[in-house]
Amino acid sequence: MKENWWKILASVLVIYSVWSGMLGSVPELPILHETIRNLYFHVPMWFTMVILYLISVIYSIKYLSSGNENHDLLAVECVNTGVVFGFLGLVTGMIWGNYTWGSPWPNDPKMNSAAISTLMYLAYLVLRNSLEEEQKRARISAVYNIFAFPVMIVLLFILPRLTDSLHPGNGGNPGFSSYDLDSRMRMVFYPACIGWILIGVWIATIQYRLRKLQNKQLN
């Protein structure tokens, strides 16, 4: 029970974000209308993905210095879970874009970057499966992961800002702070992000524990 408090916190925050996200008041903006509420559900998917990839790269570095295979397992399972959240982010973004930008894929720089970074992490998973020897696999994929993470950050958070993008906070568009995130929305948006990040970490740890059990049975 005591070590499970954060799981309950995650559940409560996510449920709270649905209730306040659907019923709370939001700014009335043209084009967006009520879809502005998607901010509480679409954006936390990406934040969760980034945090999971961050945990993964930390454990990849740890693996390289320690050689402990559990660190490698946690790094993989974080990427596995992160990819799921990445796909959720892509699909929810396509639905949202279809009704506000007029097309599910308007070749927005941030969308293309997100697609590339998702492919990059899929390549990480394929790379792992293609290597037979365990230590070699762990070491090569750890190095790949360390290179992939900064590229992902550049693709998602730096390159879209250098050009024009439909996403807020990029190019000529104003960011979260100005028109689309007032103090009422912050009260829902931040709890939603924390809740979903905790849910993502929770799923990753379950996957990690299962993988550890499987490994024990094999040996």
């Binding site: 799981k7 559940s11 449920i15 649905v18 209730w19 659907m22 849910i199 929770w202 799923i203």
Partner: peptide, 17 residues
């Protein structure tokens, strides 16, 4: 809609537990 989403989320979270 809120009730439906809540039930789905509660079920999924319970399943996770």
């Amino acid at each position: 809609v809120v009730a439906v989403i809540t039930i789905i989320l509660l079920a999924l979270i319970g399943y996770l537990f």
